[in-house]
């Protein structure tokens, strides 16, 4: 079965959705991300949807679920690269993505996650752990 690759970038995970997502792929992604967030103690999940030609309520729900699961595991989700035509369509569809933050591109999304990591979990705190 196909799976969407998950890359680790520091304390964040990067997912690039490149294929037309169907149900099983979406469920596999939710599962895999959950495992990886725990495995790497990730603090952020960056989902690049710039390749997606549409976002329907099924994909919207998948993104929302991922954000919810991530939140429970103390990680923030940022969706980046939504195409303008997709954004216009989402508004008319009536889909708001609660709990999903968005950024224009991957670079800005990473900056958001990095700020969160830096503010909420100072690196020095980690380094001090067990040492003091």
């Amino acid at each position: 079965m196909d799976r969407i690759p998950i890359l680790k970038l520091g304390e964040a995970l990067l997912v690039t959705i490149q294929v037309d997502m169907h149900d099983r792929l979406a469920l596999a992604l939710e599962e895999d991300l959950t495992t990886r967030i725990v495995e790497y103690s990730a603090k952020g999940v960056l989902i690049d949807i710039s390749a997606l030609e549409i976002v329907d309520s099924f994909i919207g729900r998948t993104l929302g679920n991922i954000a919810m699961i991530a939140k429970v595991l103390d990680a923030d989700t940022v969706v980046v690269g939504m195409r303008p035509a997709v954004a216009i369509t989402l508004v008319e569809l009536g889909l708001s993505l609660p709990g999903v933050r968005t950024a224009l591109n991957a670079e800005r999304g990473m900056a958001m996650i990095k700020r969160r990591i830096d503010d909420g979990y100072p690196i020095s705190e980690y380094e001090d752990e067990g040492g003091s």
Binding site: D20, I54, V55, D56, S57, V86, T89, L93
Partner: peptide, 27 residues
């Protein structure tokens, strides 16, 4: 979705209209 996209392009719909009808069809 792919088939609706193909026909929408053939019918001359612009990108936003294509995206709308493909999204509706997906639902």
């Amino acid at each position: 979705r792919q088939e609706v996209r193909r026909l929408a392009i053939e019918a001359g719909l612009g990108l936003v209209d294509q995206t709308k009808v493909v999204t509706a069809a997906s639902e």
